[in-house]
Design a binder for these strands. Structure first.
Length: 328
DNA sequence: AACTCGGGGAC
DNA sequence: GTCCCAGAGTT
């Protein structure tokens, strides 16, 4: 993309930039960082209400660093990719301890949870450094503008297009274009300020770029969740601090496996993860299984910080208790 | 370079 | 159902 096209895009962005709650003037490094982490593999529509709740509860990185881990993980519950929340806590503590965010891409890159993209995005957007933030939007727009099928190659080709002194603004312009006009499906080329410069458009098939990802078959697994009741309470546990749903509140149960267990379930909840699907069988038991845990009032399950898998499984179990005939 | 790691919105 | 999303960390 030449300088003329970059200026056309920046001019368009001046009038069409999305009004997002983390885009205040001037940019707040804390909110920039928090939004970028929340937005990793997560849509703006999903993030926006969660971001607002989060900054309402913890308005500064110092406040976040001082919060108990369980409360932060609970606030993150339902957003997915929980390593982000664990790294968020570690990063907040490191930043608070050193008296604020580092202001360069290289120093930001050393913080937990900040990879190549996020370090560059925070450096460029919050601190005005000429760092190049290449996300999936930039890759897709570049793939079409340059007519390059390979996503990573397209992203690298976009590096030279970032105008000096305006890298943060340009990254946001590319991201807004990718979200609003140069969408994955049904791109709105007539509304695009750089359609005349677009190779994929000239070829007549913008949607053919970038090349589609190779998809893999998702295996299936089975699991048991113990349903231990005591009056109006249910027994919950905290999962180990790493791995799938690491550190999150959960129903107790053995590790999941390939074979369908023979168990008398009152409910079976099917859940889709990124790389497998799970049938979680909720099985009543008289006593809590051995190990750490706590009795959670069923009327206060919303504040327990359950990830979606267990939140849905609990809902199914409570429904089964009300209507036993519908048990699976 | 390939895998792991969630969940929801849009279609 | 499918595809995709302001990716990072591990192996």
């Amino acid at each position: 993309m030449d300088a003329t096209a970059a200026n056309l895009l920046l001019d368009h962005h001046r009038d069409h930039a999305r009004d997002l709650p983390w885009r205040m003037t001037p940019r707040d490094p804390y909110r920039t960082w928090l939004s970028e982490v929340m937005l990793q593999q997560t849509t703006v529509a999903t993030v926006t209400p969660r971001f607002l709740r989060f900054v309402e509860r913890w308005p500064t990185v110092e406040a976040l660093a001082a919060a108990p881990d369980e409360e932060v993980l609970g606030e993150w519950a339902g957003l997915g990719y929980y390593a982000r929340a664990r790294n968020l806590i570690a990063c907040a503590c490191a930043v608070a301890a050193r008296g604020g965010f580092p202001r360069t891409e290289g120093a930001l890159r050393k913080l937990p949870g900040l990879g190549a993209y996020t370090a560059a995005a925070v450096a460029a957007i919050a601190f005005g450094e000429d760092a190049v933030a290449i996300d999936t939007n930039v890759e897709r727009v570049a793939a079409r503008v340059f007519g390059i099928g390979d996503r990573k190659a397209a992203g690298e080709a976009a590096r030279g297009s970032f105008p000096a002194g305006r890298h943060g603004e340009f990254a946001e312009a590319l991201m807004d274009l990718g979200a609003s006009i140069c969408r994955p499906k049904a791109p709105n080329c007539p509304a695009c300020p750089i359609a005349a410069q677009c190779k994929a458009r000239a070829l007549g098939s913008p949607e053919a770029f970038p090349a589609p990802k190779v998809k893999r078959v998702r295996p299936h697994r089975y699991g048991i969740a113990w349903w231990a009741r005591r009056g109006d309470e249910v027994w919950l546990v905290r999962r180990p601090g790493s791995g799938l749903l690491g550190g999150m509140a959960a129903l107790p149960g053995p590790e999941w496996g390939e074979e369908r267990p023979a168990a008398n379930a009152i409910a079976i909840h099917r859940h889709g993860f990124t790389h497998f699907t799970l049938d979680l069988m909720v099985v009543p038991c008289a006593e809590p299984p051995p190990g750490e845990g706590w009795w959670q009032p069923v009327g206060e399950l919303a504040s327990a910080g359950l990830p979606t898998l267990y939140r849905r499984a609990v809902e199914a179990a409570l429904e089964a208790e009300r209507e036993p005939r519908l048990a699976a």
